[in-house]
């Protein structure tokens, strides 16, 4: 009976997020426009400047557009995770987050359900992006499109958990601009999404080290290898560990007695 309750609640939370996503078409379009601009404009423009040598998982020389496609999938998941964080802050300001927290289910379960719901939306966006990229002649082996599903899910969960953690610290929606400057941009630019590690090492060893241990890099590499039907154990371990760390901290952050919520104060 209890299991049924959990199942229904999770289905309700995921279903609501998907319904909201379907009703907000502009959100879907804008989520796709960002990586597509990078693909069509940035990557095309830098194709000549940024030559890519042969390195795993690629077995031949590749175009720059091909190289950054997994990075752009990571970008979709990153922005989706932060969008979920934004929606949590908004929900809390508007009170609907309180409604969720009042239902008779453990808080960790509710947070995990929110995370799964947000990840489901992110994965849908990724596949839509891959569809357009296919038409643009960026084509991976067909089985790779099935291989990346677990990688996208784990990457999405890890970045979503980071978003959840941030949302437990952010009191007001206005503070979200800080997230852009201090979280999203550093994570994205100090990663292997746009340039391979060896190329970063050529210009700066410090940047190389940061990029190597950046959890976003690891998620991107997990996706990159999976897209070419390969398994990257190190990326899997790093991404999984980062997910557990972020999720654990987020659960503490939302704990009614220990978390940040207590320190923020209430109304009247």
């Amino acid at each position: 009976m209890r299991v049924l309750h959990y199942w229904r609640a999770m289905a309700g939370i995921v279903g609501r997020e998907l319904l909201r996503f379907l009703h907000q078409r502009e959100r879907f379009v804008s989520a796709l426009v960002r990586p597509l601009v990078w693909l069509f404009v940035f990557a095309a423009g830098f194709r000549a400047a940024l030559g890519i040598a042969i390195s795993p998982p690629y077995e031949t020389y590749i175009l720059y557009e091909v190289y950054i496609t997994p990075g752009l999938l990571g970008m979709i998941l990153l922005f989706n995770g932060m969008q979920s964080s934004l929606s949590m802050v908004y929900d809390r300001e508007m009170g609907s987050m309180r409604m969720l927290m009042v239902c008779p289910l453990p808080r960790w379960f509710l947070l995990c359900s929110k995370l799964i719901a947000g990840t489901a939306v992110g994965v849908l966006q990724c596949y839509a992006f891959l569809g357009i990229a296919w038409l643009y002649d960026i084509q991976a082996p067909l089985p790779g499109y099935a291989w990346i599903l677990p990688a996208l899910v784990l990457g999405g969960m890890m970045l979503g958990a980071l978003g959840l953690l941030l949302s437990s610290f952010i009191k007001q929606l206005e503070n979200f601009a800080g997230v852009m400057n201090f979280v999203i941009f550093p994570l994205f630019f100090m990663s292997t999404a746009l340039y391979p590690l060896w190329k970063i090492k050529e210009s700066s060893v410090i940047l190389y080290t940061l990029a190597q241990y950046n959890p976003f890099s690891q998620a991107v590499e997990l996706i990159r290898f999976a897209l070419y039907e390969q398994f990257n154990q190190q990326a899997l371990i790093f991404t999984g560990a980062a997910f557990l760390a972020f999720m654990g901290a987020a659960i503490v952050g939302y704990n009614p007695s220990k978390g940040m919520m207590v320190k923020k104060g209430g109304g009247g």
């Binding site: 609640a9 279903g15 609501r16 909201r20 009703h23």
Partner: peptide, 28 residues
């Protein structure tokens, strides 16, 4: 609970909002 601020999802219908709440309480 009815909170001071409206906590319904404006983009969903009345029924969809209520079904969501029912699901959170484990109702079929």
């Amino acid at each position: 609970v009815v909170f001071q601020q409206t906590t319904l999802d404006p983009d969903l219908s009345v029924t969809q909002n209520l079904r969501y709440h029912a699901a959170l309480h484990g109702m079929g």
